[in-house]
Amino acid sequence: MILAMNGEQALVAASPKPTDVRKLTQEVWGTFLGEHGPLEVGTDLGFAPDWSASVSVKGEWNGVVALEMTTSGAQRLTRSMLGLETSEELVDGDLVDAIGEMVNMIGGNVKGLVRGPCRLSLPLVAAGRFAHGSGQREVVRLGCTWAAEPLAITVHAGRPAKSLTTRPLEAR
């Protein structure tokens, strides 16, 4: 037990610090999405996300950075990045591309915070809440509000589950 706790403490110690993640996220947000005001951090509304985008970091440090948003928040973000008016039609592909690029930028900068060398994956965008691996532990959670929409940025540390045996078994 004690060893396991120490392992967890070591995991947290080697992981990015919330203040650094917050700063770089605000930089990414402010640079491309500043027109709808700043990203307010520290407002955890416990919302139900419709979309999640994630990138994983593998190497000396292992983890995954995720961005969770509502559909209307993701649409707003996409329109803002693409410079589209509210009247213009959006397809899911646009939305997936835009939130994927946002998490790519945040994830790449998070990777810069940890001891390397590490590799960044391509972004993975899915409907619904972000599902982390069973061996991964949340080390950063930023509950945010932007353009009156809730969103969350999380960092989970640890390797993703080696095998997928549990899920298919449950499914059976």
């Binding site: 650094d20 700063k23 810069g112």
Partner: peptide, 11 residues
């Protein structure tokens, strides 16, 4: 940048 700067957290 490479010559005169080092990473310090997000800075």
């Amino acid at each position: 940048l490479v010559k005169y700067f080092t990473r310090a957290g997000s800075d």
